[in-house]
């Protein structure tokens, strides 16, 4: 019991004194996950739009696969990217293994299906009469997609935030691809895993609190967005 109280006390000290290691890990975590979320949005939202607006064979099947990938285990995303970028993989020459860029890649693989799925849900939430109105007003296909995405922007933003939440909290892919190198690829989740196993509880608790705080902010923003 004392260990726990002691742990929390030291953890608070680490946070309020802006301990360089804690801050470094936090900033790295945010940078990697925000980058992954941003890049994934650029791919997932237009792709979701295309799937929503185009009729093609196997559309239902594709959507089912995308939905199944919401629950893609993070270590599998890690393994998949590992196979691609490890030295012997097809993209091994890029030298992305054990780099933050590689981790961004891994998190993108993880959250793109979720964000495509959320985009699809958001777009099907735009009422048919709005879509008809846009087409009737003389929008070409590209303008229609853009305008309808604009109509659904809050719901889509909800999907983006959800994606960020999954990216920042995952540990499997970051561990496999990043390798948890101190000061380079060590992020909140991988640091907590390591420090806890090494018995460095105050640091773990401090990082855990920060992660919890980020999660809280994400949920709050999501709630506010959905209120709109």
């Amino acid at each position: 019991m004392n260990d726990i109280i002691e742990g929390f006390t030291q953890a608070f000290q680490l946070i309020v004194t802006l301990n360089p290691e804690v801050m470094g890990i936090t900033i790295r975590s945010l940078f990697i996950s925000l980058s992954a979320t941003f890049l994934a949005s650029i791919i997932a939202i237009p792709l979701g739009g295309l799937i929503h607006f185009r009729e093609f064979g196997g559309k239902k099947g594709l959507i089912t696969v995308i939905q199944a990938l919401y629950a893609l285990p993070t270590v599998l995303a890690g393994l998949f990217v590992f196979l691609l970028i490890s030295r012997s993989g097809p993209f091994g020459f890029l030298g992305l293994m054990f780099t933050p860029t590689g981790m961004i890649f891994g998190q993108m693989v993880l959250i793109i299906p979720l964000m495509i799925g959320m985009t699809l849900i958001a777009l099907s939430g735009v009422r048919k009469n709005i879509q008809d109105t846009i087409v009737s007003l003389g929008a070409d296909e590209f303008q229609s997609i853009l305008t309808i995405i604009k109509e659904a922007r809050f719901a889509i933003l909800g999907g983006v935030i959800l994606g960020f939440g999954r990216a920042i909290s995952e540990v499997g892919a970051a561990m496999i691809i990043g390798g948890n190198i101190r000061g380079y690829t060590r992020i909140l989740t991988t640091a907590i895993a390591l420090e806890t196993s090494q018995g460095n509880l105050p640091l773990s608790i401090a990082l855990g609190l920060i992660l919890l705080f980020i999660a809280l902010i994400v949920t709050t923003i999501l709630f506010l967005v959905q209120e709109r």
């Binding site: 709005i130 008809d132 087409v135 009737s136 007003l137 003389g138 305008t147 604009k150």
Partner: peptide, 29 residues
């Protein structure tokens, strides 16, 4: 289609103000 216009039975407002709504078909063109 751009040579015609249709007003639906229950007109739908796009996001934004009245100006944006009326400007929309012109922007598309």
């Amino acid at each position: 289609r751009r040579r015609m216009s249709m007003v639906f039975q229950k007109p739908a407002a796009l996001r934004g103000d009245v100006f944006d709504n009326i400007a929309a078909p012109l922007r598309f063109r």
